[in-house]
Design a protein around this nucleic acid. Structure first.
Length: 477
RNA sequence: CGGGGCGUAGCGCAGUUUGGUAGCGCGUACGGUUCGGGACCGUAAGGUCGGAGGUUCGAAUCCUCUCGCCCCGACCA
């Protein structure tokens, strides 16, 4: 690498992010504009995210399937607001096998329509409900402005699609899934999130209600990190998804959809990373522990590596790697693994071998402060405890940062400066006009109306009208 | 898609104003000395200067078009 140090996070957050993604070998630019290559280390992180989410989906009765990449164009057009929302960003295939197609095929931007088509065939009776299917796949949206992980033409995600007999069940499912996302973000990724409702303007195209988890990045901007949509009967009506109820009456189903994408990797980077590089939460890190051996002579090397391999064996319950690379100094390796965000490093040198100790170095506390000497005896327990502490402290640190950058502005002037550095937590009268004016004047959007609302009422931060709901406003990715 | 910036070796850059045989640092390979926070010396490999056209005896350099990336806007997971 040309530059050893990353651009400073505080001076140029965007450059810091771009460099970090490349230097940590999470992803690379593809030869096609706006597309990315997810490199093995980045994909390993994604696989851990997949495992954490997939387990939660299965535990709540969902099953995985796979629907086609290509969708007949007419399908997209069946739901009015859906086509309006997505048509500007569709990739369309017009030719196949050297021939012009009779009907163009859309590369899926999301699969509500093609799944709706199947659900209409599969669902006949209330006994077929609920139908709870998820798929892990890639989708394409022709975005104008792209950024690795955060917004690319092609991205990877999961999309869950469910059908229910009643509005109440669909709403319960929608809320259950956003809560699963919250639980995942908080407990696996150590990313604090605010769970709330999207305003009508920010809703998914075709949804009656969109719930979101919103996180604050290290520059104070918001990132929508997962969404769950109550689609009402919109798609059921467009695709004739119907069932006979217990009384023999034909009814339209109530459907939901929900997704988390590789964008979440961007959230992990921007929430936890520092000027040294990535910091990964232990529960998701591809490598939880890296062992760096330190030696000079051949005799030292032999004894140190023997000890290091012994420690590795004792840590079999963790995701652990031993850096045996020749020709790189320990100092180089320290920096290298810090760039990659490995949460815990174990240093083993001749002095440690002699004393029967190892050095634990926490990634979340740079330099000497994060180092401790522990006896080799019982190292697995110390590692487990330290990883738990790192997991918790990452969350606490991110939460404290968010709180320090969240204001409850007294007036609109204070609101404007609040959204320059973080979130504004303000009463909103509920009108789309106020929301729009705020966006035009401050670039801040209404991120969500949290499900947890304070008691009492206030006045709209923009128009001063009586307001019952308090919302988060912020500049967003 | 509008405004701005930038494309020269794997990476970071100089050279472009004033046209004249392509350079530096890092990295890479090899040899040696090193190794508890990004080691050092030596040798070597590596570039149709983003692409296409044009002007010229001669283009990285001037002109036209085009592609890509970054930043700022409009749109979004």
């Amino acid at each position: 690498m040309a530059e050893q140090k990353l651009p400073s996070r505080s001076e140029d957050f965007s450059e810091w992010y771009n460099n970090l993604v490349l230097r940590a070998e999470l992803a690379d630019y593809a030869p096609v504009r706006g597309c990315m290559i997810v490199r093995p280390y980045g994909w390993a992180l994604w696989e851990n995210i997949q495992k954490a989410l997939d387990g939660r989906f299965k535990a709540t009765g969902h099953v995985n399937a796979q629907f086609p990449l290509f969708i007949p164009q007419s399908f997209i057009e069946k739901e009015k607001s859906h086509v309006e929302g997505f048509s500007p960003e569709l990739a369309v295939v017009t030719h196949g096998g050297g021939e012009k197609l009779e009907e163009p095929l859309v590369v899926r931007p999301t699969s509500e329509t093609i799944i709706g088509h199947s659900y209409a065939r599969w669902i006949q009776s209330y006994r077929d409900l609920p139908l709870l299917i998820n798929q892990w796949n890639n989708v394409v949206r022709w975005e104008l402005r792209t950024k690795l992980f955060l917004r690319t033409l092609e991205f990877f995600w999961q999309e869950g699609h469910t059908a229910h007999a009643t509005a109440e069940e669909a709403e319960a499912e929608t809320l259950q899934m956003i809560d699963i996302y919250r639980d995942f973000a908080v407990n696996e990724a150590a990313v604090p999130v605010i769970v709330g409702r999207k305003s009508a303007g920010e809703r998914f195209a075709g949804a009656n209600e969109t719930y979101t988890i919103e996180a604050m990045m290290g520059d104070g901007k918001a990132l929508q990190s997962g969404t769950s949509h109550n689609l009402g009967q919109n798609f059921a009506k467009a695709f004739e998804i119907r069932y006979l109820d217990k009384n023999g009456v034909l009814q339209h189903c109530w459907t939901t959809s929900w997704g988390v994408s590789t964008r979440f990797i961007g959230a992990i980077i921007m929430v936890h990373g520092d000027d040294q590089g990535l910091i990964l939460p232990p529960r998701l890190a591809p490598w939880q522990v890296v062992i760096v051996p330190i030696y000079k002579s051949d005799e030292e090397k032999a004894s140190v590596l023997e000890a290091a391999r012994g420690v590795r064996a004792e840590l079999a319950g963790f995701r652990v790697t031993l850096d045996e690379r020749e020709g790189s100094s320990p100092g180089f390796k320290f920096n290298d693994w810090e760039m990659r965000g490995v949460p815990l490093r174990i240093e083993i040198g001749p002095k440690d071998v002699a004393k029967g100790t190892v050095v634990l170095a926490r990634r979340d506390r740079p330099g000497r402060e994060g180092k401790s000497f522990v006896p080799r005896e019982g190292v697995a327990e110390a590692v487990g405890r330290t990883l738990d502490e790192i997991q918790h402290s990452l969350y606490e640190r991110a939460l404290a940062f968010r709180e320090s950058r969240t204001a409850d502005p007294a007036d609109y002037a204070a609101f404007k400066s609040a959204v320059e550095q973080g979130f504004a937590w303000s009463y909103w009268c509920g009108s789309a006009e106020c929301e729009k004016s705020i966006k035009e004047e401050t670039k801040a959007t209404l991120r969500c109306v949290p499900l947890d609302q304070p008691a009492g009422e206030g006045r709209c931060i923009y128009c001063g009208a009586p307001a019952r709901e308090k919302a988060y406003f912020a500049k967003a990715y």
